[in-house]
């Protein structure tokens, strides 16, 4: 039989250990934002990315000083950028159900995030958007305004879903491959202006 002192010491030790483990376990519980963020499926520029709810291919990325709507409902003239416009052409196809809301962000390697402009009515996201019917591929442009010095190895994150609620929705993360010499080349000689056409069914 162990002494009463040893039993008390063991009890105190076990209690402190359990309390410590509870505190550590509690600190590891993800917060609401992290626990319900969209589920990401990664891919590369030019290849189809299967995000379960939709598939998407980033076909081309261009950089321009100005953008405008091509025969759109938006403002008439080209809009100059406070920085540069980054315009990504994508083909996107809903897989199972009509997707009513499409959002996109450009996430830089240093963590800075830019959302699509709302100034163009023809943008695939951010303007009037487009409903994606299952099995019908749609091609459109995602347009971002970014300070030149913030454009660093961007990842295009596209989220298409059935409702406004984006919690636990599907998201495609596409590495645009814009870094180093390729990025320098685009920034050194940006296009003067890009006319953005309305999203349309891919021929």
């Amino acid at each position: 039989m162990s002494s009463p002192f040893a039993r008390s010491a063991l009890t105190v030790f076990a209690t402190l250990t359990l309390i410590t483990m509870i505190v550590v376990a509690q600190s590891l519980v993800p917060d609401e934002t992290l626990a319900t963020q969209p589920i990401a499926y990664s891919g590369e520029m030019g290849e189809p990315v299967d995000a379960r709810q939709f598939t998407i291919t980033a076909e081309k990325v261009r950089v321009a000083e100005a953008v405008s709507d091509e025969d759109g409902l938006g403002t008439s003239g080209p809009i100059e950028a406070n920085g540069v416009w980054v315009v990504a052409t994508v083909e996107i196809t809903a897989t199972r159900a009509p997707l009513l809301n499409t959002d996109a962000e450009l996430v830089m390697s240093d963590g800075y995030v830019y959302s699509t402009t709302g100034w163009l009515s023809n943008g695939l996201a951010g303007g009037f958007g487009a409903t994606l019917d299952p099995g019908i591929p749609v091609t459109g442009m995602l347009v971002f305004e970014v300070p030149e010095d913030r454009l660093k190895d961007p990842t295009l994150q596209v989220n298409a879903r059935e409702s406004l609620d984006d919690r636990l929705s599907a998201r495609a993360d596409i590495d645009l491959g814009l870094s180093g010499a390729e990025l320098d080349r685009l920034l050194a000689d940006p296009e003067q202006s890009i006319a953005v056409p309305a999203p349309a069914q891919t021929p």
Binding site: G83, Y112, V113, Y114, S115, G118, R150
Partner: peptide, 8 residues
């Protein structure tokens, strides 16, 4: 404008 972009 509906969203203020960072660093601009």
């Amino acid at each position: 404008v509906f969203e203020i972009q960072p660093g601009m």
